[in-house]
Design a binder for these strands. Sequence first.
DNA 1: TTAGGTGCAAAGAATTTGCCTTTCA
DNA 2: TGAAAGGCAAATTCTTTGCACCTAA
Lengths: 158, 158
Amino acid sequence: MESRIERLCTASGLRMTHPRRVIARVLSEAPDHPDVQELYQRTRAVDPRISLATLYRTVHLFEQSGILERRNLGSRRARYEPSGEHDHFHLVDLDSDKVIEFDEPETEALMHRVAARYGFDLVSLRIELFGRRTRHNTESRKTPQGSSSTPNTGDQVR
Amino acid sequence: MESRIERLCTASGLRMTHPRRVIARVLSEAPDHPDVQELYQRTRAVDPRISLATLYRTVHLFEQSGILERRNLGSRRARYEPSGEHDHFHLVDLDSDKVIEFDEPETEALMHRVAARYGFDLVSLRIELFGRRTRHNTESRKTPQGSSSTPNTGDQVR
DNA sequence: TTAGGTGCAAAGAATTTGCCTTTCA
DNA sequence: TGAAAGGCAAATTCTTTGCACCTAA
């Protein structure tokens, strides 16, 4: 069955090879912001013949076709996510590397005005917050508290 | 004569060697957001015996001492700037890589509230705008228009 | 005098590329 | 079938590190 990203690929007129289909599927199923190594593990799990070079090439291709977006989010490696239906920003948990996405349409509009003030047309903007879960007096909390025990590459919250 | 950054170094109790003094001076005089290669050229111009390894080590040291801040600003290489007297954000001219700094204290406060909403204490935040100079009907403009002809590493506007 | 810093060259990590083989349309 | 894509390994780019020699305090 065709994955969401695979549909975007064919819509963009990309030649759909086997590796691209696998990568598209892995990306479609990713709930997080994986880096290339992480994607490599996941594609290998599906088909170990797919090489790292192909992964890099494909991810670039998808990026240039506007299907994927590259993020840095504080780490050295680039991380990827499907291009937004809507714009959003990122809040990174420094203890677990998990990423929470959030909207701020007003802020976005404001940033367009800031750019305009300096004589610029805004092409893109990044807002990245880095923080740690509040350790408060009591145990009460607003957001469900993830088991922030394993500081690793992936993230889940969305 | 002692540079501003050199004073910060001694204030932090760092051992002031010759290479560190030169690097501190180069950083003090930088009006832009240079990357390590750029800093290397500038220190070599002062004293060609200073090695790239020392530059990396020094820049790390300064960063950990809170004297410098590392930025990415869209490029692969890390770029550095003296730690802020005040917080600010960056607007990058995509055609020239020049960087304009701007304040948005209200936005910053808002981002603290956003983080709090998710149960986080905000440690740091980045707001980076990427844009191009507005090409308008007439020639009138608000900001002085830099000769955005040479797309290179450095930037100047502040 | 000696702990800490430096230079040099080699090692690492992340990513890109050359080249020959394979595959999709 | 032919142009585009993939695999593999080597090359690049940016950054870090081991080690023997130097230098600031």
